[in-house]
């Protein structure tokens, strides 16, 4: 029982680490590139898009969608590794 408790704490720590990095990307895409750095980035052109504007109205949304699916995938692996997967007996 004690052994399992330790495992669960490690599981939770791993989850927090993954969340930290994914939320860091979330913040960079949604706030840093789309708001804080939008003016300098707008000097760079990507086709007809000023880059900052593209992040603000397109790019960040794509990043958000990808982040959630990445989280699902990573946690699927972590759940299995620690034996807390719902399919596990």
């Amino acid at each position: 029982m004690a052994e399992e408790g330790k495992d669960l704490r490690a599981y939770w720590r791993r989850n927090l680490q993954i969340q930290f990095w994914l939320l860091a990307i979330w913040f960079v895409a949604g706030y840093v590139l789309s708001i804080f750095l939008v003016e300098p980035l707008n000097h760079i052109k990507m086709g007809g898009f000023p880059l900052g504007f593209w992040f603000a109205q397109q790019g960040a949304i794509y990043v958000f969608v990808i982040l959630i699916f990445v989280y699902c995938k990573l946690m699927r692996g972590v759940d299995k590794e620690f034996g807390v997967d719902e399919d596990a007996a």
Partner: peptide, 21 residues
């Protein structure tokens, strides 16, 4: 124009928080 961003990202970015937290 650009300022419409807060609606676009504001009403999508919350799902990342929902999924993770």
């Amino acid at each position: 124009g650009y300022a419409g961003t807060y609606y676009l990202l504001g009403w999508t970015g919350g799902y990342v928080l929902l999924a993770l937290l």
